[in-house]
Design a protein around this nucleic acid. Structure first.
Length: 152
DNA sequence: GCCAACGTTGGC
DNA sequence: GCCAACGTTGGC
């Protein structure tokens, strides 16, 4: 069992949007960063636990928990000329971008703000807290996961 | 292979 | 809106 954190701008796709999907499941499409892709393509397993993080908003922070719902597969938006995520360099025979489906588990009891996470010494070294970090998908250790859940 | 220019992310 | 950090692109 692995643990992850995935960012989304709530203006574009929020935890509430995910919760209201009929299946409460959504393909995490549009990721165009190789490191983030590699995590999804190579390391995410069904049942892995994921923090849903809201970025670029009034109170950036962890807002909920979801899980990996399926094995990775090529991101179809890369093949679609009408998609804003279209990438002409990605071909169905040799796909460049991959994604996983994620399923809503629950909201956290409250938003756990980024500013608060920064105050906790045991979370020092978290990739999320590194200055200038722009990675949208990153691993979380079990220790960090458990510690953060106790902050709820 | 180097690196300047440029675009994007995302906190503040 | 500002700007630091960082990834990508493309000329050489």
């Amino acid at each position: 069992m692995n643990y992850w954190l995935m960012k989304s701008e709530p203006n574009a796709f929020s935890i509430d949007d995910l919760a209201h999907r009929s299946d409460q499941t959504e393909p995490w499409d549009g990721v165009r960063n190789y490191q983030a892709r590699n995590f999804m393509r190579d390391q995410m397993k069904v049942g892995d636990q994921v923090f849903f993080y809201h970025s670029n908003c009034d109170v950036p922070g962890i807002v909920g928990i979801m899980e990996v719902a399926g094995k990775s597969y090529p991101d179809p938006t890369a093949f679609d000329p009408h998609s804003k995520y279209f990438d002409p360099k990605s071909h169905p025979a040799d796909p460049r971008w991959f994604l996983v489906d994620v399923k809503y588990c629950r909201h956290t009891r409250r938003i756990i703000p980024l500013a608060e996470l920064k105050e906790h010494e045991p979370l020092e070294g978290m990739q999320l807290l590194r200055k200038g970090n722009r990675l949208s998908i990153m691993p979380v250790t079990k220790k960090q996961w458990d510690y953060i859940l106790r902050l709820e």
